[in-house]
Amino acid sequence: TEDARKEAKKIIDNGGSPDEAAKFIKKYGLSEDQARELVKRAL
């Protein structure tokens, strides 16, 4: 979702790792793979 993508970008912009961002956005109901893909797109 757009919200999850924004959250991921915010985490990374604040110095978080892509892994942290992926873990965080899994709470939106995404699978591990979906979360990682979304983080990649957010970069």
Score class of each variant (00 low, 15 high):
Gly15Trp: 04
Thr1Gln: 12
Asn14Glu: 10
Ala21Tyr: 13
Ile12Ser: 03
Gly29Trp: 01
Asp3Val: 14
Ser17Phe: 03
Lys10Thr: 08
Ser31Ile: 01
Ala42His: 05
Glu7Ala: 14
Ala8Val: 13
Gly29Cys: 14
Lys23His: 11
Ala8Leu: 12
Lys9Tyr: 07
Val39Thr: 02
Phe24Trp: 11
Lys9Ile: 12
Asn14Tyr: 06
Ile12Glu: 02
Glu2His: 10
Glu20Gln: 09
Gln34Glu: 13
Asn14Lys: 09
Glu2Gly: 08
Ala42Asp: 01
Gln34Ser: 05
Glu32Phe: 09
Leu30Gly: 00
Lys40Met: 14
Lys10Tyr: 11
Glu32Lys: 02
Arg41Leu: 14
Asp19Gly: 07
Ser17Gly: 05
Glu37Trp: 06
Glu7Lys: 07
Gln34Asp: 09
Arg36Cys: 13
Gly16His: 05
Gln34Leu: 09
Ala21Gly: 01
Ala8Phe: 10
Glu20Met: 09
Leu38Val: 13
Ala8Gln: 02
Gln34Ala: 09
Lys40Arg: 13
Lys40Asn: 12
Lys23Gly: 09
Glu37Gln: 10
Ala42Met: 15
Ser17Gln: 04
Pro18Asp: 07
Asp33Glu: 14
Ala42Arg: 04
Ile12Phe: 06
Glu7Ser: 08
Lys10Gly: 05
Arg41Lys: 11
Asp3Ser: 12
Asp3Cys: 15
Gly16Leu: 08
Phe24Thr: 08
Val39Trp: 04
Ala8Glu: 01
Gly15Glu: 03
Phe24His: 10
Pro18Thr: 07
Gly15Lys: 03
Lys26Glu: 14
Gly29Tyr: 01
Pro18Phe: 14
Leu43Glu: 03
Leu38Met: 08
Gly16Ile: 05
Gly29Pro: 00
Ile25Gly: 01
Ala21His: 04
Asp33Asn: 08
Tyr28Glu: 01
Ser31Arg: 00
Gln34Val: 09
Arg36Trp: 15
Gly16Asn: 04
Lys23Gln: 14
Lys40Gly: 08
Ser31His: 02
Ser17Cys: 09
Val39His: 02
Glu32Asn: 05
Lys23Ala: 14
Asp33His: 09
Ala8His: 02
Glu7Gly: 05
Lys6Gln: 10
Thr1Leu: 15
Asn14Asp: 10
Asn14Ser: 12
Ala42Leu: 15
Lys40Glu: 13
Ala22Ser: 06
Glu37Lys: 07
Val39Asn: 01
Lys9Asn: 04
Ala35Ile: 13
Ala22Gln: 07
Glu32Leu: 12
Ala8Lys: 01
Val39Ile: 11
Lys9Arg: 13
Glu2Trp: 09
Ile25Tyr: 07
Leu43Arg: 05
Gln34Ile: 07
Leu38Phe: 07
Ala8Ile: 14
Gly16Cys: 15
Arg5Pro: 04
Gln34Phe: 06
Thr1Phe: 15
Glu32Ile: 11
Leu43Ile: 12
Glu7Leu: 13
Leu30Thr: 00
Leu38Lys: 00
Arg41Thr: 10
Ala4Pro: 08
Lys26Trp: 06
Ala22Phe: 13
Asp19Asn: 06
Arg41Trp: 14
Ala22Val: 15
Ala22Arg: 07
Glu20Ala: 07
Asp33Val: 10
Ile25Gln: 02
Lys10Cys: 14
Lys40Val: 10
Lys27Leu: 06
Thr1Arg: 11
Lys9His: 08
Arg41Glu: 13
Ile11Cys: 13
Arg5Lys: 13
Pro18Gly: 06
Ile12Ala: 02
Lys9Leu: 14
Gly15Asn: 04
Lys26Met: 15
Tyr28Leu: 06
Leu43His: 04
Ala35Val: 11
Val39Tyr: 06
Phe24Asn: 05
Leu30Asn: 00
Ser17Asn: 06
Ile25Thr: 01
Glu32Pro: 06
Ala8Cys: 12
Thr1Gly: 09
Lys6Tyr: 09
Tyr28Pro: 00
Lys23Asn: 14
Glu20Pro: 03
Asp19Tyr: 12
Pro18Lys: 05
Glu37Cys: 15
Lys6Asn: 10
Asp33Phe: 09
Asp3Trp: 15
Lys9Ala: 07
Lys10Asn: 08
Val39Pro: 00
Glu32Val: 07
Lys40Trp: 15
Tyr28Ile: 00
Leu30Ser: 00
Ser17Leu: 06
Asp13Glu: 13
Ile12Gln: 03
Asp3Tyr: 13
Leu30His: 00
Glu37Ser: 07
Ser31Trp: 01
Asn14Phe: 08
Lys23Met: 13
Lys10Met: 10
Lys27Val: 06
Gly15Val: 02
Lys10Gln: 10
Gly15Asp: 03
Lys27Arg: 11
Gly29Leu: 03
Ile12Met: 12
Ala42Asn: 03
Arg36Met: 12
Ala4Cys: 12
Ala8Asp: 02
Arg41Pro: 01
Glu37Leu: 10
Ala21Asp: 04
Gly16Met: 10
Tyr28Thr: 00
Arg36Ile: 11
Glu7Ile: 13
Ala21Val: 13
Leu38Asp: 01
Ala35Asn: 01
Gln34Tyr: 06
Arg5Asp: 05
Pro18Val: 12
Glu37Met: 08
Ala35Glu: 01
Ser31Cys: 04
Ser31Pro: 04
Phe24Asp: 02
Lys23Ser: 12
Val39Glu: 01
Asp13Met: 13
Ile12Tyr: 04
Leu43Gly: 04
Asp33Met: 09
Ala22Pro: 00
Ala22His: 06
Glu37Pro: 00
Ala8Asn: 01
Glu7Gln: 11
Lys6Thr: 11
Asp13Leu: 12
Phe24Ile: 12
Lys40Thr: 11
Ile12Gly: 01
Ala4His: 03
Lys26Val: 14
Pro18Ser: 06
Glu2Leu: 11
Ala22Lys: 08
Arg36Pro: 01
Ala4Ile: 13
Arg5Glu: 12
Lys9Ser: 04
Ala22Glu: 08
Arg5Val: 15
Glu2Phe: 11
Asn14Leu: 10
Ile25Ala: 07
Ala21Thr: 04
Val39Gly: 01
Leu43Pro: 01
Asp13Trp: 11
Ile11His: 02
Leu43Met: 13
Glu2Thr: 09
Glu37His: 06
Phe24Pro: 00
Ile25Arg: 05
Ser31Asp: 10
Asp19Leu: 08
Ala22Tyr: 14
Arg5Thr: 09
Asp19Cys: 14
Ile11Ala: 04
Lys26Phe: 07
Asp3Lys: 13
Ile12His: 03
Lys40Asp: 11
Lys6Met: 12
Ala22Thr: 10
Lys27Glu: 04
Arg36Thr: 07
Lys23Glu: 15
Arg36Asp: 04
Tyr28Met: 07
Lys10Phe: 12
Asp13Thr: 07
Leu43Asp: 01
Glu20Phe: 09
Ile12Cys: 04
Asp33Leu: 09
Tyr28Cys: 05
Lys10Ser: 09
Asp13Val: 07
Ile25Ser: 02
Asp3Leu: 15
Ser31Ala: 04
Arg41Gly: 06
Arg5Asn: 05
Lys26Ile: 14
Tyr28Asn: 00
Glu7Met: 15
Asp3Gly: 08
Thr1Pro: 11
Leu43Ser: 04
Arg5Ile: 15
Leu43Asn: 03
Ala4Gly: 03
Ala42Ser: 06
Gly16Lys: 03
Lys27Thr: 05
Val39Asp: 01
Gln34Met: 08
Asn14Ala: 14
Ile11Phe: 12
Ala21Arg: 05
Asn14Pro: 02
Pro18Trp: 11
Tyr28His: 01
Asp13Gln: 12
Lys27Ile: 08
Ala35Phe: 10
Ile12Asp: 02
Lys6Pro: 02
Ile11Val: 06
Leu43Phe: 08
Gly16Asp: 04
Ala4Phe: 08
Glu32Thr: 05
Lys26Ala: 13
Glu20Val: 05
Asn14His: 09
Tyr28Asp: 00
Thr1Ile: 15
Lys26Gly: 07
Ile12Leu: 15
Lys9Val: 07
Asn14Gly: 12
Asp13Ser: 10
Leu30Met: 06
Ser17His: 07
Glu2Ser: 10
Lys27Pro: 00
Leu43Val: 08
Asp19Trp: 13
Gln34Pro: 00
Ala4Ser: 02
Gly15Cys: 13
Lys26Pro: 00
Lys26Gln: 15
Lys6Ser: 08
Gly16Pro: 02
Asp19Val: 09
Lys40Cys: 15
Gln34Lys: 05
Glu32Met: 12
Asp33Arg: 08
Lys6Asp: 06
Asp19Arg: 09
Arg5Gln: 12
Ala22Cys: 11
Asp3Pro: 07
Arg5Ala: 13
Phe24Ala: 15
Ala22Leu: 15
Glu32Tyr: 12
Lys27Asn: 05
Ser17Tyr: 04
Arg41Asn: 10
Tyr28Val: 00
Glu2Arg: 10
Ala4Asn: 02
Lys40His: 14
Tyr28Gln: 00
Lys10Arg: 14
Ile12Arg: 02
Lys27Tyr: 05
Leu38Trp: 04
Gly29Lys: 04
Lys27Ala: 06
Glu2Lys: 08
Asp19His: 08
Val39Ala: 03
Gly16Phe: 08
Ala22Asn: 06
Gly29Ala: 02
Ser17Asp: 09
Lys23Cys: 14
Lys23Tyr: 12
Ala4Leu: 14
Ala35Trp: 14
Asp3Gln: 14
Glu37Asn: 07
Glu20His: 05
Thr1Lys: 10
Ala22Met: 15
Glu7Cys: 15
Ala22Gly: 03
Gly16Trp: 10
Ala42Glu: 06
Lys27Gln: 09
Lys26Tyr: 08
Lys10Glu: 08
Arg41Phe: 10
Asp33Trp: 10
Lys6Leu: 13
Glu7Trp: 14
Ala42Tyr: 14
Ser31Leu: 01
Arg5Gly: 08
Ala21Ile: 15
